[in-house]
Design a protein around this nucleic acid. Structure first.
Length: 272
DNA sequence: AGCGGAACCTGTCGGC
DNA sequence: TGCCGACAGGTTCCGC
């Protein structure tokens, strides 16, 4: 489900309310997300820790805890964090409740059970975080860096953009939207870009992500913010999910193809 | 290095 | 109505 703009939206909203609150209790209703850690250990590692800050790296959320440790979360396809008042019973997709010292509830819910929750002492201990590439909203993500990085791979661009060890945070929707706006075919090998193309791609990565963050992300079927409101960027998508509809620029029908077992939407006439 | 396939789960939608 | 396959904002592992 969520890509960088959706995770960024959640992080901002959590950060507005969680810092200063202490985890009084943890209730695990289904433990798929814990990666084999026994629920009792998971609970004990979080009990009586105070949340100091919520940050993001790529699509990972990081809850910094006092006096020590981090809760690292990945929402995968259908994970959500919802803030709630006290509840008597868990909802059908509630997996974990974090009960806070003011009586409120941070609910981790996840229909498909792909999401992950991990507690580590130091962020350096989290292998998946260590494998991430540059965050596209960070200062290090420059046009020069991108141009250089692209030369190292012959992967199709769509695949390259979604590889989290290159750029951390892009997924299926934004990769398609970025390539459309940059007028570059998703099928082109990464190292085949020439002239101004890397610079154009860099500009669109930044522009699309920043615009999507301003709209609080994209809600297609079920992305929800912390307060259960929707994002609004779905109203600005130009190709994703629009197979057969006319390209906004040239009126040719948008195509849908299969790449790496995912749908890719693009305009075969504008994107070359 | 890169690709296809399968796996992890649940739900929805369209076709017959 | 009901069954069945395809598909879904993700990642990882395995074999060629």
């Amino acid at each position: 489900m969520p890509e960088l703009p959706e995770v960024e939206t959640i992080v901002r909203e959590l950060n507005a309310v969680l810092p200063g609150k202490t985890i009084r209790d943890v209730r695990v209703f289904r433990d798929n997300a814990l990666g084999g850690t026994p629920a009792a250990d998971f609970r004990r590692n979080l009990l009586e820790r105070r949340i100091t800050e919520v940050t993001r790296q790529g699509k990972f959320l990081q809850f910094a805890l006092h006096p020590t440790a981090y809760l690292v979360a990945h929402l995968r396809m259908t994970g959500k964090f919802i803030l709630s008042g006290p509840l008597a019973e868990p909802g059908s997709h509630h997996r974990v409740w974090f009960i806070l010292d003011d009586g409120s509830l941070l609910v981790f819910q996840d229909m498909r059970c792909f999401g992950t929750l991990t507690v580590v002492e130091r962020l350096e201990d989290h292998l998946s975080l260590q494998a991430l590439g540059v965050d596209p909203l960070a200062r290090e993500f420059t046009a020069d860096w991108l141009g250089e990085a692209l030369t190292a791979s012959r992967s199709p661009l769509k695949h390259w953009l979604m590889n989290q060890s290159n750029i951390a945070g892009l997924g299926n929707i934004y990769a398609a939207e970025i390539l459309y706006r940059a007028k570059i075919s998703p099928l082109r090998p990464a190292n085949a870009l020439t002239g101004e193309e890397p610079r154009r791609l860099h500009r669109e990565v930044r522009k699309v992500l920043q615009a999507a963050v301003r709209k609080n992300g994209t809600t297609i079927s079920d992305f929800q913010r912390v307060d259960e409101k929707s994002g609004q960027f779905q109203n600005f998508l130009r190709v994703y999910g629009k197979e057969g509809e006319p390209c906004p620029s040239c009126r040719e029908p948008i195509l849908r193809i299969r790449q790496q077992q995912r749908s890719t939407f693009y305009c075969p006439s504008c994107q070359t």
